[in-house]
Design a protein around this nucleic acid. Structure first.
Lengths: 237, 237
DNA sequence: CAGTGGTCTAGACCACACG
DNA sequence: GTGTGGTCTAGACCACTGA
């Protein structure tokens, strides 16, 4: 076989069986050791591990080790209806919780001002938080909301991470325009989700409209592939 | 320099300005030379280049060089309606064409048989092709169709790459169920699209239903991020 | 043929986790 | 402190392109 991909493929298979043979929660051998045992360099091994990490089969924790993860139920959702992650998870009996939360009240960036169609001098409430399912980070959500609609003081200890639920309290919402793309994780997002910079993520960029046509929320949502299964029914013609 | 991300960020900025200052179509300095000039190793430089390649700003061609690409018009489409890429492109006045085409008539794999709900002994028509826009590969499409619906002989020289148009000729179609995910390119797909293995792609996995409820097509579509902008309107409640 | 990008190696230093 | 993963380096060999 001249095919030079066989080396990578073989390594991929070896890693796959190793992970399959390891009990969930257990730790894999360290990278230097595993690289030696498999006869490849650490860089190559890490590249091969990336796929499994992306699929959520292993979790790498700096300073501690690489662990085989417990399989996570897949969160499935149609995209036609806007739904919070909690709501999606609840439907399949999955427990989700909010991890790190960052709140800022500040002037909007140029992009935010444009997306929200804000006048000069307005401020926005900025929310960034990690969503966990079964103890693992699975999504990173960023919302930017005009501060005449929502302010820091409106966030109490009952805030679960869903900006949607929060806005529903004081507004009648209409719909969200959501752009879908595939991106690689920046350092910031990678850190929040416990993955590596450069790993692949599904990204939603959305603007939320209230019933009277006002833009009330501009958000970025980053989802771990493998945990979420989003679908849409597309009609012909 | 305490912040270790500053090195990467600075490199990213340097690369960005270099690309911006280079005329589209022109070649960048070679990797070894550029790495020397920027004071980083080739591996680090290549990692930094990956982002720009993903965004379609540069094109790397083995044995030849790295070129700054001409900006491509963005192909925008809503997902509610199933539409061929040609049709999408036509709306914005973009010329698309089919690149490499592979056709097979063979028994289905287990996954294909399950997705298409085929009985034993059936055969399928397998279509894989690259779609180009403005001379650049932008999508890789794979369709699997039961061979009682479509056969190799039905593909004439007028085949443009759209399985949808082909099926419309003989069937009344209803809708498509499309799962959306972010993936990294396999060697096969990377080669077809002229990107690197491991680069990020948007993937649609779809099953197409005819008006009488029969599954008539099972497909995977891989899209270059940056070229396509898919959106969906999500209603509240 | 020389030069390019694609891949891999061995080794190093760092920030971090955990005892 | 010790060992982990995260990152970077210098160098090598390969497949491929194009003169």
């Amino acid at each position: 076989m001249m095919n030079h991909t066989n080396a990578s493929q073989r390594l991929h298979e070896q890693l796959g069986t190793l992970i399959a043979d390891t009990r969930p929660g257990d730790r894999l051998p360290s990278e230097p050791r595993l690289a030696r045992e498999l006869g490849v360099s650490r860089a190559t091994l890490r590249e091969a591990m990336r796929t499994f990490e992306t699929q959520g089969m292993i979790r790498r924790q700096q300073g501690s080790g690489t662990y085989v993860t417990h399989p996570v139920h897949i969160i499935e959702s149609g995209l036609e209806v806007l739904e919070s992650i909690e709501s999606m998870a609840q439907r399949i009996g999955l427990v989700v919780s909010m991890g790190k939360l960052a709140v800022e009240q500040r002037p909007p960036t140029a992009a935010e001002a444009q997306a929200l169609q804000l006048e000069d001098g307005c401020q926005v409430l900025f929310l960034a938080r990690v969503i966990h399912a079964e103890g693992r980070p699975v999504a990173y959500l960023i919302d930017t909301i005009p501060d005449h609609l929502l302010q820091t003081k409106d966030l109490d200890e009952n805030f679960t991470g869903s900006a949607l639920e929060l806005l529903k309290n004081s507004l009648v919402l209409q719909s969200s325009r959501c752009e879908i793309n595939a991106v690689t994780a920046t350092s910031e997002v990678a850190k929040a989700l416990g993955i590596q910079r450069g790993d692949v993520l599904l990204r939603f960029e959305a603007t939320l409209y209230s019933m009277d046509g006002e833009i009330v929320d501009y958000s970025f949502s980053y989802f771990l592939p493998g945990v979420f299964r989003f679908h849409v029914v597309r009609k012909v013609e």
